[in-house]
Design a protein around this nucleic acid. Structure first.
Lengths: 233, 233
DNA sequence: TTGCAAACCAAGCGCTTGCTTGGTAGCTTC
DNA sequence: GAAGCTACCAAGCAAGCGCTTGGTTTGCAA
């Protein structure tokens, strides 16, 4: 087996900086609009999603940020810590967004729909959230990092679970835990085939899934799902 | 980017052998019950599924087979060809099994159920099929190999599509292509959480999914899905 | 008995990988 | 204006990777 998962050293967290202004170099306070650390994080997230963790080299990430590979380790202690940071940030941000989206709705079923739409946004949205990484690259994390991220993941999942339980009488008759797992399969799997620029909108996709889990319930938009449409590309 | 996907050389296919009898070494005709090539294939499939393609080294595979890493290349030209061979064999075998399972049923909905059960079998069954690899490790294949495997994958998918179209009036009102993609998400995703040794049987899981895609239809076994059950571990 | 091919070993090559080290440029602070 | 900090470069190391090479063992066929 390829020896992954090194032991953790001292956690790195360069002091936050203030000023702006763009230079050839990102020095102490003349940072880019997005700080150097954030730019590394974004580049890493994008590359991890697009090509996978193992297929992405630290040299790739450094190149897109515009620095040398060694300089990455000024911001992060290891490549794995970079993955953990991406996962941590992504799941924290999305738990927040999801909760806000749910609270904006009154009905139980409408809340489930809001959660669903929010999750699809996190996967396909223009903000380029890397939510799928939590599933697809889970085993690229070492056990210690897994345990740490799992705490955030559980918080995210508990929001889902209570929303599903609250709407249980309007959903397909099924244990909420199983329903959630099936739902996650559908949303995560959509990363492999759904193309945001295609003919199927994210709202329409949300409706299709709602049709499955809440049969007979009008789901708001696009009530009768038109047949014979294609989603390709 | 990590330089994968080398060019193809001459395809290797050692002549098939006949006799049996176990020795310390697998020579021309005194092969193990499963030929050496098959044992390599099985070991590779198992390791690819368990730890991922990138995390599996050729030394790992060789060790579980009981040979040295260099000897692997007597059977396969490259590690990627090994992955391709696994995918090819798996999708060919499962297309066959699935078609047989479907033809054993008369009704359109029963056929869909048979396909579904067959796919779940391929993912979780005791035969240890590596069906999930086709999704999870798809991008580990180079473009050329992808094109070759895609032919088999398309055959598999077309069986699904025609079954779904035939049963369309008894399924959730939705384009069959989209329904298939959502279904595949549920089945493939189950690899991440479903445990065959748990309290939820594969038949019961099949029923839960059928409940979603064919609401109001009695699905054969286990008609009213009991609530409040847990599937964990 | 010799010839031959398949199956494998032993050794290691060349390359890429994540990461380290020692030093420097630019900015802030006192 | 010196100290001190962050951000970065330049160079390269050790380890692990897929894969190659040359030779040996084994069984079978002629």
């Amino acid at each position: 087996m390829a020896p992954n998962h090194k032991v953790r050293r001292t956690p790195k967290a360069p002091r936050p900086r203030s000023s702006l202004a763009q230079r050839t170099r990102n020095t102490a306070s003349t940072a880019s609009p997005a700080s150097a650390r954030d730019r590394v994080l974004r580049a890493a997230a994008h590359s991890f999603v697009a090509h996978g963790y193992a297929q992405t080299t630290v040299r790739d990430i450094a190149r897109t940020v515009g620095i040398l590979s060694g300089s990455l380790f000024h911001h992060f202690d290891s490549k794995e810590e970079l993955l953990e940071a991406v996962m941590t940030e992504v799941s924290a941000r999305n738990t927040e967004r999801m909760q806000a989206a749910a609270l904006a709705e009154a009905g139980t079923l409408e809340r489930v729909r809001a959660l669903l739409r929010s999750e699809l946004d996190a996967i396909h949205g223009e903000t380029g959230e890397a939510m799928t990484l939590l599933v697809t690259e889970w085993r690229s994390l070492g056990p210690a990092a897994q345990a740490r991220v799992l705490v955030l993941r559980d918080a995210y999942e508990s929001v889902w679970l209570s929303a599903l339980q609250a709407a249980a009488d309007r959903l397909a008759p099924m244990d909420s835990f199983i329903l959630r797992r099936l739902l996650q399969g559908m949303t995560a799997g959509s990363a492999h085939w759904y193309r945001p620029r295609g003919t199927l909108s994210l709202d329409a996709l949300t409706d299709r899934i709602m049709t499955l889990i809440a049969p007979g319930a009008a789901t708001g938009h696009d009530k009768l799902a038109p047949r014979g449409r294609r989603a390709r590309a």
